[in-house]
């Protein structure tokens, strides 16, 4: 299937972007990560998070199985989702509410050079307008868990003072 069919073109003159809606966990019986691409305009001040992550070497046609990742009813192998992003999506999915996420590999049609150029120009606005930017650094460890606990504590006390 040609990748161009996965995306409907964005209106280049508007502030339109695509967001990935990651459906809440309980809606999926199979525990699959079910997502939809939705088009929104930044002018409407949508609520979303934007992810900052490292692109991993991407093998076309990679299928993830536990859980599966489904975007617009299609298997994620038709999209360019690297393993690192997949691991992040597993964590970002929330048990009780839909998450809206902007992730460049999925939300930009990477096959379309024109759209890519235009979206790259909008990138600053996309991250600026996000309610929160998620910096995904990869797997955790005991040490990291300890560090993050402490950082959160300091942050909490520093901002209460």
């Amino acid at each position: 299937m040609a990748a161009t069919n996965l995306y409907s073109p964005l209106e280049p003159s508007s502030n339109c972007i695509r967001l990935l809606r990651i459906n809440k966990e309980e809606e999926s019986e199979s525990n699959d990560i079910i997502c939809e691409l939705v088009e929104v305009s930044l002018d409407d001040v949508p609520e979303y998070q934007a992810i900052s992550y490292r692109w991993s070497q991407f093998e076309p046609g990679t299928t993830y199985t536990s859980p599966r990742l489904i975007i617009n009813g299609r298997d994620s192998s038709e999209f360019r989702v690297g393993e690192n992003l997949y691991e992040a999506l597993k964590q970002i999915r929330s048990p009780n509410r839909d998450a809206y996420l902007w992730a460049d590999a999925i939300c930009i049609n990477q096959e379309d050079d024109k759209e890519r150029g235009h979206q790259v120009m909008q990138m600053g606005d996309i991250y600026k307008s996000a309610d929160e930017v998620l910096i995904w650094l990869g797997p955790s460890s005991h040490d990291i868990e300890h560090l993050f606990g402490l950082v959160s504590l300091i942050d909490h006390s520093a901002n209460r003072a």
Binding site: A88, Y127, V133, L137, S141
Partner: peptide, 9 residues
């Protein structure tokens, strides 16, 4: 550009 950012591992 981030207004708020969270480090995730």
């Amino acid at each position: 550009k981030a207004r708020r950012a969270t480090i995730m591992c």
